[in-house]
Design a protein around this nucleic acid. Structure first.
Length: 261
DNA sequence: AACACGACCTGGTAGC
DNA sequence: TGCTACCAGGTCGTGT
């Protein structure tokens, strides 16, 4: 989500208000995206969880998800896109709005604004950095879930926008064992998780925006400092025990068995 | 209902 | 060197 937020902020400054004159679809979208989006104007850019919502005239939305490896950005000349461009929107003035993904897992589709908004409202939990993400609501969801804490955090219906890296970092900040069933986690720890989510994402958005939006910073190294993610075997920064990697839900979870209980 | 697992894709890297 | 196997920031569909 922090990366998606950074993408959205940059797009708002570079693409909002632009007219889409033509669209070329190579992969990751159907031709109907091209037919339906061409000729419309980009009004605003919204984000919900990890979903990017490009609002077009006519109550239509270009619903975009970057998945693992996608990127979405404006280039000065729509003809000069990389070989991994999957969708290119030719903007009036000659720029290009490019959905790029070497792995071709990203998705873009054109939908009615009301329908995507209601769908996402039903599927996604609260925005973690908004007033809708309350401790009471989070406690209530935690009480009734038997899922391991890590999977609970990853589930977009509980809170929108946490991915594998940030879920691990949140658990580390809250000193919680990722395997612990949520309904067995004390209220104090659930509160620590809530605080950890807000803290990690606030910091990560700041890092992502700095890395992504800075002048000429197309691959800045100013990344969010991770304590456990991808640090298997390294000493824990808090207690010096070795960081473990375990499979959960088909992916890797990193945590410290010494101080995450 | 809740969970596990493969599929979707390509590229990088560790290991033989 | 060259091959194979496995891993990767996410989500969805299918099967148990």
């Amino acid at each position: 989500m922090p990366e998606v937020e950074a993408v959205c902020r940059k797009l708002r400054s570079e693409a909002a208000g632009s007219h889409i004159d033509a669209v070329r679809v190579y992969r990751c979208a159907t031709e109907s995206v091209a037919e339906g989006a061409a000729g419309r104007k980009i009004e605003t850019i919204d984000r919900r969880g990890k979903h990017i919502l490009i609002r077009l005239t006519g109550e239509l939305t270009l619903h975009t998800h970057l998945r693992m490896s996608g990127n979405l950005y404006v280039i000065p000349d729509h003809r000069l896109h990389s070989m991994y461009a999957r969708v290119v929107c030719e903007l009036r003035g000659g720029q290009g709005l490019v959905l790029e993904d070497g792995r071709a897992l990203a998705r873009m589709d054109l939908v009615e604004t009301a329908s995507i908004d209601s769908r996402l409202a039903a599927e996604l939990g609260p925005e973690p950095l908004s007033k809708h993400f309350t401790l009471d609501g989070f406690l209530a969801a935690a009480e009734v879930s038997r899922q391991p804490a890590k999977l609970f955090l990853m589930h977009q219906g509980n809170v929108a926008g946490l991915g594998n890296i940030y879920a691990a970092e949140v658990l580390f900040r809250a000193r919680l064992d990722p395997r612990k069933p949520m309904n067995q986690v004390s209220a104090r720890k659930v509160a620590a998780l809530h605080e950890g989510i807000v803290g990690v994402l606030t910091d990560a958005v700041q890092s992502a925006v700095a890395a992504y939006a800075g002048p000429g910073a197309f691959h800045s190294e100013e990344n969010f400092p991770v304590a456990v993610y991808d640090r298997e075997g390294e000493p824990c920064v808090r207690c010096r025990r070795r960081v473990l990697r375990i499979p959960q839900g088909g992916r890797s979870t990193y945590f410290c068995p010494g101080c995450q209980r």
